Computed example of a mutant assay.
Amino acid sequence: MILTVPLGTAYTDHLTRPLSTRAIRWAIGQLRREGATIQGLARQLGTTWNTLWSQVRPVLSEAANDPSRFEGVQVLGVDEHLWHHRDPRRRGPKELTGMVDLTRGTHPTARLLDLVPGRSGKAYRDWLDERGDEFRKRVEIATLDPFQGYKNAIDDQLEDATCVLDAFHIVKLGGAAVDDVRRRIQQETLGHRGRKGDPLYGIRHVLRAGRERLSPRQQTRLASAFAAHPDHVAVEVAYQCAQDLRDVFHQPTPARGRRLAEQLIEKLPSCPIPEVARLGKTLRRWRTAFLAYFDTNGASNGGTEAVNGIIELGRCIARGFRNFEHYHLRMLLITGGLDASPHTQL
C-alpha cells in the first residue's frame, strides 16, 4: 500500500513553521556582523527566504521606529549615495540622503541614523524637522560635503550648530583643479587628449600625491614635465596651490592651519589661472564652514564616508535590492543604526 501526501503540506510544513526567538536572534547577529544574506541563513535554518524575512523584518521595523535611537547625537554627518541603477520611474529616486551619528564616545564607531529618498536640501530639512526641537538642540556640530542644499538645511534647522566642511573634499577640490588645468594645457599645447609619451599625461598620477611623499625619481619627473613647455608653468602653479591647500590640514597646531587657510582664501580668487581662481572663489564662499574645521578639533565627514562604504558592501553582498523598505532596514542593521534599540537585543 502506497501512501500519497498532497504536495505543499507535510513535506513543506517545516519550511514555513515559526522560528524560535533564539534562531531570530542568531539570524540578526549574522546579518549584522558576518555579512550574511537572507537566502544563505534560510538555507542553514532549513527554511525559506520569505519565512525568515517575515520574522526578522518586524523586529527590525520595531527597532527602526524606536525614538531612543536618536538620543545623544551631538555630531551629525550627512552624505548622499545611489541605492539602485534602474529606471527611477519603476523603482523610485536613485539618490538617497543618509544621516550619520559621528559623536565620539557614545558609540565605538559612526552609525547610520536614517536614509531618506532624494538628494536635496528639502530632504535633509524635512528629516531634521521631523526629529523635533530636542534633537536639533543637542546637535553641536554638523559636517557635510560642499553641497549647498545640505548647507541651507543646516542653516535653517540647526541654527546653533557649527557647520564644518569636510577636509577630504576640500583637498579633492584642489586635486580636481590641477587635473582641469593639466587637461586644458594638454589640449592647448598638443591639440589632443593625453597619450603615452606626453609629458603632462605621464605625471597625471604623481600630481595627486603629496609633495612630501615624492621620491627623488618622482620629483625629477615633475621637474622635467614642467620644463618641457613654457605653458606648463600653469600646471606647476596649480600643483603648488593644491599642495598648499593640502598642507592646511597638516600643520602642527590648529592656529597655524587656520592662518594658512585664511591666506589661501584671500589669494587664490585673484589667481590668473581660471581653474585656480574658481577654486579660490569656492573656498571663499565656504569660508566659515572651511575655517570651522580648526575650531572643532578636526571634525570631518570621514565617518559618514566609512558608513557609505559599509552600505556599498552590503548592497554588493545582497546582489542589489528591489524594495526600498528592505534596503532601509538592512542598511540600518549592518551600519549599527539599530544597535541602540533594545528591540534588536531580543
Rank of each mutant, 00 (worst) to 15 (best):
T220D: 09
G197T: 03
Q219W: 13
H205G: 10
G194D: 02
R195K: 12
S215I: 03
Q218A: 00
Q187Y: 08
R211V: 10
K196R: 11
Q187I: 03
G210A: 14
Q186A: 07
R211L: 06
F226W: 12
L200W: 14
Q218L: 00
P199E: 00
H192V: 05
L200N: 01
A223I: 04
S215H: 06
T220Q: 15
H205F: 11
L214D: 02
L222R: 04
T220V: 05
H192S: 07
R213M: 13
H205R: 15
Q187D: 11
R195W: 08
L200H: 11
I203R: 07
S215C: 08
I185N: 00
I185W: 07
H205S: 15
T189R: 13
I203Y: 07
R184A: 09
A225K: 08
L190D: 10
G210E: 13
Q218C: 00
P199W: 05
H192E: 01
G194R: 06
R193V: 08
L214M: 08
G194Y: 05
H192K: 06
Q186N: 12
P216S: 07
F226R: 02
R211I: 08
Q218M: 03
P199M: 00
R221L: 14
R221S: 03
R184M: 05
R204M: 09
G191R: 04
S215M: 04
I185H: 03
A209C: 15
Q186V: 12
T220F: 11
E212L: 14
D198E: 15
R213D: 07
